[in-house]
Design a protein around this nucleic acid. Sequence first.
DNA 1: CAATCAGCGTGATCTACATCACATTCGGAA
DNA 2: TTCCGAATGTGATGTAGATCACGCTGATTG
Lengths: 190, 190
Amino acid sequence: MQAKEILREHIDKTVTLTDEQFDYFFSHFKTQSFKKGQAIITAGDKVDCEYFVLNGCLKSFYINDDLKMFILQFSMPTWWASDFDALYSNTKATINIDCITDAEILCLSNHDREKLCNEIHQVEHFFRWRTNKGYVAVQKRLLSFMNNDTRHRYEELLAQYPALYNIVPKHLIAAYLGVSRETLSRLYHS
Amino acid sequence: MQAKEILREHIDKTVTLTDEQFDYFFSHFKTQSFKKGQAIITAGDKVDCEYFVLNGCLKSFYINDDLKMFILQFSMPTWWASDFDALYSNTKATINIDCITDAEILCLSNHDREKLCNEIHQVEHFFRWRTNKGYVAVQKRLLSFMNNDTRHRYEELLAQYPALYNIVPKHLIAAYLGVSRETLSRLYHS
DNA sequence: CAATCAGCGTGATCTACATCACATTCGGAA
DNA sequence: TTCCGAATGTGATGTAGATCACGCTGATTG
């Protein structure tokens, strides 16, 4: 399936755009290809764009002072990814995004998103709903963090994204769950 | 300060509405007063509204199967609160909201918010930004949960909301930090 | 081909925090 | 004023998970 169709199908789930509106909307996206391991956003850099995954898998992660990595999100096809804090407040990135697999993505600049939101009311509606879904998802994850032990969160993750098990190395899953790779290893070998 | 002025000042930080627009916008809100301890949203109920705090302090919390409480948010004046998952997806509440102190709040129904978002583009813009800020805040808290120990998160919380220390009983702060009240008690007595 | 390294498993030990139990303080209602 | 329940402090003990250390395997690269 072509980039345009993938995005259209995604948008159509939330709002209705005319063909002209969608063509115009789509014309602001740039397609980019990345290789496995390549960085898309690096902490400290300026953040200009948000990204829509066409295929492949990204990870958004934070590196703390002890160089320990924490994964905020695995981004699968039709997911959006960026450092939204840096993007919206026009500050330097504090999180990183890179490719777990080869990936094709669409880029939309902050400037163009705001322009499109202004020009097409429905586009603003779309982004409000997208962000709202993101908010609810992160809040649920926070709750799960407080409430459930590692095994529970691990099973929850695999139930939600079965594909991850094959695509993503285990130590990254550990970094998502917020436990050491050793603990995760012991978890499914007992 | 009157409810209308408080809300206006809050909205003005993000978008510009004409007086007529704001009057119309404001006409959809209902003022409500609550006593300390009173419930605003109860898990299992239908959720119709979101709430804007004029004064007082609310808590949004989840109760797990073991009857353990986890606090998602303390809502101070000019904060918004609801079970946004239930509200947006029109399902039953999974979280509770009640009053830590006497409180005055403004209610906006889901129906009216969507209507206003449709009618006034700037209103939709406002809610997109509000949700975006919420998203970023929750993500930061999640990160802090994975990265920092309890003492660090405790100091972070008090640095961000010094008022909480006087208003909120310690066991609620523990429920926000995701630790037992005993652990929190030992924390600042050592 | 050898050499290197990322990914993963596993034992031993340490630690932050949970849990249980009980004492104390304090504010509000009768 | 007295009483009761909510909020809090604190000791003893148990446990999930971190950390360190080391070995194995399989993929990549010079």
